[in-house]
Design a protein around this nucleic acid. Structure first.
Lengths: 347, 347
DNA sequence: GTGAAAGCGCTAACAG
DNA sequence: CTGTTAGCGCTTTCAC
């Protein structure tokens, strides 16, 4: 554990004062220095293998060049691309990220914010899921820069990035409708989660647009975004509304579960029933029937959030928009077809 | 941005010295203090909402309570569980992790180690892929605690965790052999990566165990662990050795690619050809034919590495084993069957 | 242009 | 038992 080279060592080696060394090594040299001395110092630093001690610097400047990234669970495949998107903009700027998994537990989320603050993070990018949690608002209220992903926090000026969930749901809904489906059920996500709620609202709106009786539509809420809940909820849908010809699911995993359940009860997708997903997760195209779904921009969402954060940290907080909505893309594959009725009548 | 409460504030409020406050708030109170004063200080701290400033503490103690976690790419599905495994043991101990993606690029890896060191991480858990890179050895040589995953570094005492790749390969090999396969090809992973190399060696060893002529066996190396390379390499295997009845692939993604190629050229898996994978990645059981593969313990590998790291950081470096091998599990599913020849002859 | 000095908030000897 | 003191390594104001 050979001791690290400090500014003092360089000062000794070059015969100048530490403060001079500090100035010479500062990349944004606003202070005036002789070119000669700068050169000598830089060479000495190089030679001695100097590496700045960020801890000391942080203590002095009150900036750690570190941001906290809060996500529900990194093992959920939609988050790694977001993390890389964030990294892609923050790392070149010299920022590191401390990533924490909240497991969507309120108490844990609370603790993690404190942990991040103890470590002096310069800001927090919060990939929200829980619809309400006061933790992050308090942090923001205390002056910590915060940007959220997938989550608008009412009554504040916390900038947020969201995917255009409404447009995505509307696109799949219209796809189904235009093929002739009129008995479209919604396999909704957990209403505790923002995406669950947004997509359900969007579903109702899309149905209303087509003048369908939204009261009469079958909507079943899954407890979690998992295949198991997809199966269970699909079963409930078919029980409650056997006339259903299409199930619009709030995400891909629910859709996979729904397809599986339908297959088990002898309904083939898409010939007997159309099913759609949301997210376009990896590997989906290898799983038959290839799911028709909505692709969201994960990497770009992370990058966009990071860009806002970077702007705020650079003191340009005034210029950042509170709302950023990213476009989504309808991906048509094999899990959707015209309903039998339409096919029979249509001929 | 209301200023944070410091020890000094508490000292003022309670009328004692800062150092007394520091001692009173130290969880591992080895220093003797009056219960009364401790209580008063703690209450004051609570009331004022004191939170220790870890930066200041780190500067003084030379410990950041932060570790660096280097992984190739978090979007590769096998890594998130490892990360959570690490977190599961480090977080309760008060450690945070800075996760960086190396993209398996040597230069980048080098830079990242420096970045981590600049930030004063107490240790690095290195999930290796590149077979040789001097960076991490130098860091370890400089006294930084290092634990690696999937990678033994020869000639050093750097502790490493590996999955029992050899046992896994041997298990699938024997499964195929015992079903009657004699023309078993290996779709090998990149030989620049440790897993690629280990699995190829294990394949040769398994073949030799069964007294097969290892020289005569078909082995094709994929450039990357991707479906595309799986397709390409499978094609080459079938061209070079049309008699092949089974392809043992170095990982699941290669296997998925191989299956896809075989299907395209009219070979059904498993009736015409048996194909096996490695890793048992998520969602595999939803993709037909369900792949026979080897499950490795990702979460546990992360946790094991973290436990070693924790022991080292606690000063018990002497007690940690250099080598930890985690058992793997053969997962038999639908992508393997007896070869046609055996089925014909067998009756 | 460069040096001197102070101090970020905390911990750990050393006194008493 | 508690106070005093001295820094960790760096940045930054103020002198000269």
């Amino acid at each position: 554990m050979n001791k690290r080279v400090t500014l003092k060592d360089i000062a000794h080696a070059t015969g100048v004062h530490v403060s001079t060394v500090s100035r010479a090594l500062d990349p944004k040299r606003d202070t005036p220095l002789t070119d000669d001395v700068v050169l000598r110092i830089r060479q000495a630093a190089e030679k001695l293998g100097y590496r700045p001690n960020r801890i000391a610097s942080s203590l002095r400047t009150q900036r750690t060049m570190t941001i906290g990234v809060m996500i529900p669970d990194i093992t959920n495949m939609i988050f790694p691309p977001i993390v890389r998107g964030i990294e892609s903009v923050m790392e070149p700027l010299g920022y590191a990220s401390i990533i924490v998994n909240t497991d969507s537990q309120r108490g844990r989320e609370q603790r993690l914010v404190e942990i991040l603050q103890d470590r002096g993070v310069d800001g927090i990018i919060h990939t929200a899921v829980l619809l309400e949690d006061p933790t992050i608002e308090r942090a923001a209220g205390a002056g910590l820069p915060v940007v959220t992903l997938n989550r608008r926090i009412e009554g504040t000026h916390i900038p947020y990035i969201i995917n255009d969930e409404a447009a995505g749901i509307s696109a799949v809904f219209n796809l189904l409708y235009d093929l002739g489906h009129r008995h479209i059920a919604h396999l909704a996500g957990p209403q505790l989660l923002s995406t669950g709620q947004l997509r359900l609202n969007a579903f109702r709106a899309a149905a209303a647009d087509r003048r369908l009786d939204t009261k009469a539509m079958t909507i079943v809420e899954a407890a979690q975004f998992h295949e198991t809940d997809g199966r269970r909820s699909a079963s409930e849908i078919l029980l409650r509304a056997p006339e259903t010809t299409a199930i619009l699911c709030a995400n891909d995993r629910l859709a996979l579960g729904a397809i599986d359940h339908c297959r088990k009860v002898g309904l083939n997708c898409p010939t007997d029933i159309s099913i759609t997903g949301f997210n376009d997760m990896p590997l989906l195209e290898l799983i038959p029937p290839r799911l028709t779904t909505v692709r969201i921009q994960q990497f770009e969402a992370g990058a966009a959030a990071a860009r806002l954060m970077a702007a705020i940290l650079a003191g340009q907080g005034e210029d950042v928009p509170v709302e950023t909505i990213l476009p989504v893309l309808l991906v048509e594959r094999d899990s959707v077809a015209a309903p039998r009725s339409a096919r029979v009548t249509g001929r």
